[in-house]
Design a protein around this nucleic acid. Structure first.
Lengths: 115, 115
DNA sequence: TTGGTATATACGTGTCAAGGAATATATGAG
DNA sequence: CTCATATATTCCTTGACACGTATATACCAA
């Protein structure tokens, strides 16, 4: 279990990460919100921490976990390779739809010129 | 193995996907470029095809595989949740670095004003 | 038909990680 | 100290899946 991809392959870990977007959370808070046994939460948090997705601050008996950005950027960079590819397709779809159903004259979202 | 995340957790599958960015490829071409046994290539391609990451066109005995965009967009949407979070951090880091080591007067990349 | 090339599938095996249960460690309160 | 709360760790079992080998299927050529 080394790559960022393997880490986020696990659904419960993704759930934890999403929870932490809003704000830092203690283990107990995560446990309650996700209705997950506490040892399971701790184990997933350990994986996330060792992988660099989160970090923990000590607060008395509690540990407050929060996101760290680096690994997300790494994922984003991999995806970026494909972005040019799929945006080509979005453009093609847009052109197609525009032909079927021409865009209205709205000032707000100027449509990209064809060619 | 249902989610897009599980599909791309496998390194060989990511390698195949990256290969296909440039252009469509036959199974044999992938096999040679990745130095991977042919049955392994076929099996990973099956997973990728059933998951909607690629599609195959028949060309005589060969199958030409190419990328499909939808699942990539799905991954991107998940990552997007975190983008606002990590860009906050990039900004903070930039401000920090600027304080340590003030930016030169270069016309090309105007630095964002602090506050 | 036979043979050759290209790709897919089936089967057996080993590894690895997720999950559950029990227990350990740490900190605070009284 | 003792008890309670919060979190971490250990042990075990089980299932999934990646891989290798062998074989099957598909298509073309002669």
């Amino acid at each position: 279990m080394e790559t960022a991809f393997e880490i986020i392959a696990e659904p419960n870990r993704r759930a934890i990460l999403s929870l932490l977007i809003t704000s830092q959370q203690s283990v107990g808070e995560i446990e309650r919100q996700l209705r997950m046994p506490q040892p399971m939460v701790s184990k997933h948090l350990r994986v996330l921490r060792e992988a660099g997705f989160v970090e923990a601050k000590v607060d008395a008996q509690r540990r407050l976990y929060q996101l760290k950005p680096e690994r997300f950027q790494e994922l984003d960079e991999w995806l970026a390779q494909f972005r040019r590819f799929w945006s080509r397709h979005v453009d093609a779809l847009e052109r197609h739809l525009d032909r079927i159903h021409p865009p209205e004259e709205t000032k707000k979202k100027p449509r990209r010129r064809i060619q």
